[in-house]
Design a binder for these strands. Sequence first.
RNA 1: GGCCCCUUGGUGUAAUUGGUUAACACGUCGCCCUUUCAAGGCGAAGAGCACGGGUUCAAAUCCCGUAGGGGUCACCA
Length: 488
Amino acid sequence: MKGSKVRVRFAPSPTGYLHVGGLRTALYNYIFAKKNNGDFILRIEDTDQSRYVEGAVENLIDTIKWAGLEYSEGPDAGGDFGPYYQSQRLDIYKKYAEQLISEKKAYYAFDTPERLQQLREEQMAKKLQPKYDKFALTISDEEVKAKLDAGEPYVVRLNVVPGPKVVINDAVRGRVEFDRDVVDDQILIKSDGFPTYHLANVVDDHLMGISHVIRGEEWLSSTPKHVLLYEYLGWELPEFAHLPLLLNSDRSKLSKRQGDVAVEQYRDKGYLRDALNNFVALLGWSFSDKKEFFNVDEMTSEFTLEKVHKAGAVFDIDKLNWLNAEHLRSLDGAVLLEMLRKEIDKSEYDNGNYTNDYLLLVIESMRERVSFVHEYLEKAPFFFGEVTGYDEAVIKKRWKEDTPGYLLKLAENFEKMGNIEDKHDYETVLKQTAEELGIGNGKLMHPLRLSTSGMGTGPGMYDLLFILGKEKVIKRMREAVENIKPIA
RNA sequence: GGCCCCUUGGUGUAAUUGGUUAACACGUCGCCCUUUCAAGGCGAAGAGCACGGGUUCAAAUCCCGUAGGGGUCACCA
């Protein structure tokens, strides 16, 4: 381990969005740093010019911040180990590449893409592992210099030579060994002068004092290259931890084709960041007491890399939805109010029409019935606008020939009520009316719900009436009597 | 194909690291509550721990093999 200070990093490539798997990687890094009083760093791995996406970095930063994963060093946070964009560190990589070349641990290569392609195809045809054939090493030093002077395009390759097995002590997987000869002479510097991931990653991790490399399992098989690089450069190895993959329901690597993979898609759909973090944390890790509903702070006290599961985890949207509902329901009314106001702003409704007190009542009446904030509007539109239609299935089941008469009587009795201070006043009157009419409460209740909400489901009957207010209730009842015709 | 990783109900995980009727959560189903829908409560079905061999008084836990799945083999990360 590097010194005693824990320093970890999340090092995404800015390809346009933050993948949910990336969110989990970032989260584990963040928590690990917090737990160990260490530093969490954001580094942008933008060494592929061809994949440059406008605004990708800003989006990444936005999303990471939305998730609440604060980093102490990064592109927009500064720090003593910057710059934190790899594209701004080209001279650093070049320096180490040259050092390796001078020590014969790396070399210049001038092969054309066509030759490499052909080589690869031949090896594949023979069912061999595709590997560079070290052809460049047959070129004399003088010739190399001549080519360089002539401005011929070149790459720099790692010179892997025979030796003992490469051993990785992975914090989640334990000891993993690779034969040295399966490691390819990886390109370190591309012909455009940019480093590849492998070089840039190792150099930066070392220079930035990274103590633990916590990343996805897809990196495990290229780790020997990295280990070799540390060895060649004479640097101390960081601790490695390779996290299990996130999977589609068919157990293949989580992909766009089978659902949403971008964190912002979940954010935009109304998922709470606490719920998403909670969910993603559970994909590969758990509390020893089996607690499943928690926030990041609670998780921090118990997190260890050793407890991370080894096998890939299927992303189960049902469980995410459940967690979202749980987190949403646990929020204070005031917080929910603010969220609901924002949702109203996005809708056809006008925030000016509702007082805070009114919305707070709406919130409480629907609290157990929504999993997302936007569901307040979808599941209880009758609180925000007029009733614009009536559920036919409910009409069919609950609206009979004698219903209008009953309802009118009820409206009449409601009208006679004085000031209503308790929602149960409605209950009293409804029951009295039923008795007066000699019918069951249900004959009044269901049509009443339908007429005041247009729906067959919703908040408690008396909450609904109380929140709407007597006037509106009676008005809606009479409108319903005019508009609803029984369905045979 | 080579190399590497993985394998407990449909899904995510547990099992004091060899000794429990294999536990919890999501989901599913049922009942209760409620003349709505949820939430909540109670309960059920669902794995015998990928498979096959060992070791052991005893194995989901240790060993060997097999199978299956996944990752990776780019001048992408």
